[in-house]
């Protein structure tokens, strides 16, 4: 049985009359990367900051490894590593000083190797205020994981990072996951969530609109699956939409492209058709809608229903 590390039950957060988060519930298992997705104002940061003990929930229960962030903040500190949405350190503090500073409060030896690993080797003695946004984000991540916490909470971890740094960060998160670290991340980057997260929850207006693995979410939408087929004799060019569940059909660069609501029967029928016409398959590609397309579909549906 999987061990639940982060438990969110009927969590609610309000700011005056504004209900930012409305009774949401989800669990995150040990060693899982869990993504919180949603547009601005959906409640992602309120949820994360309440789990981090920076905000007080207005209802429900939050637990990280059985620790209550509000009542047991001191026990929480060594259990979590946090990269806040806005990284802030004293402007005159250098990465080297920051590493020693925070590690001394966590009572662990400074992890200067993480500064090297995250590309800050030549910036160790540069004051925080002189670092670029990407360098500040990488430093915040290094500080978040320096005390080897079992849970890491990241708010927009790749915001402001270039492509190379983003890949390095993803590799690092995978390594941490392999070591059993549980990672909760909020992101706007759907490709990142699809690539990294084992499961995601899509938050809309403070409610969970969908939850599951990226594959589950993309499979359950109303989006059509794209099937691209190329054959030696190009016999498919004459068949048009005459395959089951195909809604649209087009030809491009010697590929017959079908958009199907149920790809299994469609692919099966295409292969039978090629066999019947003594044609030979050259290439077959099946592409589900991306998480981004599914996300847009969910947000669009929610907007139209006024939910």
């Amino acid at each position: 049985m999987e061990e639940i590390v982060i438990k969110v039950k009927d969590f609610q957060k309000t700011y005056g009359d504004l209900v930012a988060v409305e009774e949401i519930s989800f669990d995150v298992n040990r060693g899982e990367i869990f993504g919180l997705l949603g547009p601005n104002g959906a409640g992602k940061t309120s949820t994360l900051e309440s789990l981090e003990g920076l905000r007080k929930p207005d209802g429900g229960n939050l637990r990280i490894l059985e620790v209550d962030p509000v009542r047991q903040p001191n026990r929480l500190r060594d259990l979590i590593g946090v990269q806040l949405q806005a990284s802030a350190l004293p402007a005159s503090m250098t990465p080297r000083e920051a590493m020693q500073f925070f590690c001394s409060y966590h009572k662990v030896a400074p992890r200067y190797d993480l500064l090297d690993r995250l590309g800050l080797n030549e910036k160790k003695s540069t004051q925080f205020g002189m670092l670029s946004t990407g360098q500040q984000r990488r430093l915040a991540l290094a500080l978040a994981i320096a005390h080897n916490p079992p849970v890491i909470i990241l708010d927009e971890p790749t915001a402001g990072l270039d492509v190379g740094s983003r890949v390095d960060l993803h590799d690092l998160l995978r390594e941490l996951q392999t070591d059993g670290t549980t990672i909760l991340l909020a992101t706007h980057d759907m490709a990142e969530a699809e690539k990294m997260a084992d499961r995601v929850a899509i938050l809309l207006k403070g409610k969970i609109a969908a939850i599951g693995s990226p594959n589950q979410l993309t499979a359950t939408g109303g989006g059509l699956v794209k099937i691209s087929v190329s054959s030696e004799a190009a016999c498919l060019e004459k068949n048009g939409n005459n395959f089951p569940n195909v809604r649209q059909h087009t030809l491009k660069d010697s590929y017959a492209i079908y958009y199907s609501s149920e790809p299994g029967p469609t692919v099966s029928a295409i292969l039978d058709y090629l066999k019947d016409h003594n044609d030979r398959l050259v290439d077959l590609r099946v592409e589900r809608p991306s998480l981004e397309e599914r996300f847009l579909e969910i947000t669009h549906t929610n907007h139209n229903t006024g939910g």
């Binding site: 003990g53 920076l54 500190r77 915040a140 500080l143």
Partner: peptide, 11 residues
């Protein structure tokens, strides 16, 4: 927000 960073690191 520097104190927030301090708080989550146990200062």
């Amino acid at each position: 927000g520097i104190f927030r960073s301090f708080k989550i690191n146990g200062v």
